[in-house]
Amino acid sequence: MTAAYEFLFAPFVDFGFMQRALLGALLLCLSSCPMGVFLMLRRMSLTGDAMAHAILPGAAVGFLFYGLQIVPMTIGGLIAGVVVALGAGAVSRLTIQKEDASMAAFYLISLALGVLIVSIRGSNVDLMHVLFGTVLALNNDALTLIALICGITLILLTIFWRALVAECMDPLFLRSVSRLGTPVHFVFLGLVVLNLVGGFQALGTLLSVGLMMLPAAAARFWCSRVGTMCLVATAIGMAASVVGLLLSYHLSLPSGPAIILSAGVAYLLSMMLGTRGVVQDRMRRYRHRTA
């Protein structure tokens, strides 16, 4: 019993930095995982990835002027994310190029630019901080920011839920009954950027999208309705956060990758064992009902 306590609870009870890390990660799951579900359902999984890269130069400019400070880097990241999202959207609407190609072009430029700017002032250690985050070093500013982003996301998601579902399920129908389609799309993209920026301090620009997409992709194998899918994704994300932090503590692993890898294991298990996963699918294939 004590061994179980030592393993599961002691790290969080004894150390303030572990409590902060846990709180930050759980709050992030609460807002990022539902966003991930909608990104996946709109076939924009890779867009999330691209947006995560796009944040980098903005954060890097913040770093260039203020060092490793959360507020300037966040604001910089937010601006860069919005510019790239709007830029890629504009290119796809105004030219013959589709959004995936313009998005790829923008994020590759952004990534190279970001790494360049960080290197001008910082060391490789700083670069690692920006790219992969430091969930164990979340300070009060960072936690407040994450909580704020989580609140905004949940409120807007509740308000626009019906429009977002309609826009995903049947966009042409939504256009025929309402003018909300385009605004909802931009609110949604804005929230994606906001959540990536929120995850950036904890998990870095490259990994923050992992907490968004992996639980969502895993939840797809368990649910057949979008609401439950969001709840299951959040639960999987939270479980992965706890497991990842514990592994990182006991085995001295870097915390960000430990969390994302835990989510990755959840994804692989769901793919195999989920109610709509490979195993169930196989079993069902050789049995059928009379009607």
């Binding site: 579902v165 399920m169 049947d170 966009p171 042409l172 129908f173 797809r220 057949s224 899918m229």
Partner: peptide, 14 residues
């Protein structure tokens, strides 16, 4: 129709 048939929804939702 631009309806996404793979969207996780029931007939009632549609």
């Amino acid at each position: 129709s631009e309806l996404d048939k793979s969207f996780p929804a029931r007939v009632t939702d549609l």
